[in-house]
Write a protein that binds this DNA or RNA. Structure first.
Lengths: 125, 125
DNA sequence: CTAATACTTAAGTAGGTGCTTAAGCGTTAT
DNA sequence: ATAACGCTTAAGCACCTACTTAAGTATTAG
């Protein structure tokens, strides 16, 4: 009998997990891309995607669960719009890591500067 | 006989696809997170992850294929480091969409301002 | 009314993802 | 040399994802 593995811990929370998982699919990114140009119906989102409507609806659910997209149904048409706060959350996660890396580079620079004229890898003083 | 679906078009290129797919996994994000604090060996990356080493190596391959991480083997130790340019690519993709959305909001605002003396949406005078 | 539109739900499937264990290989320590 | 270390590869399995088709539900048009 095989052991099952657990859902895995999510650094930054489960919300970030849903966000990046939503952005990981090309079709879903195309939908997000379209929605940055303004609200759209499900049919309008489906039009350029060469896939069936149910497939698009499933993608839409993923996007909604992630918080990237909201939608409201009026009459028989569902209108979708982007949720910029979610977009910014993902952006922020990456920015935080990038700046953390830059800071650790800074600390390395200070360390090397404090060490005096010890030669380093890559370039010589 | 069932029809197979195609790999799907990638808005922004296949590189972005690999990037977001790499970031979509919590374990992989944990590895990225660790690497922002400085270079690490494969064992060091594996230590906090409660999974076998081969699993970590597979994640590492995904990260390398995406361009997020580079590694070099010296002796029997492989040292991994983050590749900030890739991190910035992903960040930029999101930023581009967010600003596109903001600009379409601006255009809506100008349109409404030009249409009459109703300056904003959401609240009535 | 009926018919068309715009989704929506349900059920099923090929292929991909994320793990596992076991065995192998080059490098360093004793 | 022998053994330990650090990874690496291979094979296999459970689960998940991204689709499909078919049938169903409101809503609007004629």
């Amino acid at each position: 009998m095989l052991k099952r593995y657990e859902p895995a811990p999510a650094p930054g929370g489960a919300e970030i997990d849903l966000l990046f998982q939503a952005l990981a699919d090309p079709s879903r990114r195309a939908m997000v891309d379209r929605l940055t140009r303004g609200p759209a119906s499900v049919s309008e989102l489906a039009a350029p995607l060469s896939m069936s409507m149910p497939a698009v609806v499933q993608h839409l659910h993923v996007l909604q669960d992630s918080g990237l997209v909201r939608s409201e149904k009026v009459g028989r048409v569902r209108t979708c719009s982007i949720q910029p706060a979610a977009l910014r959350s993902a952006e922020q996660w990456i920015a935080d890591r990038r700046t953390a890396w830059e800071q650790s580079l800074d600390r390395l620079g200070e360390y090397l500067a404090g060490q005096s004229d010890k030669p380093e890898q890559g370039s010589t003083p």
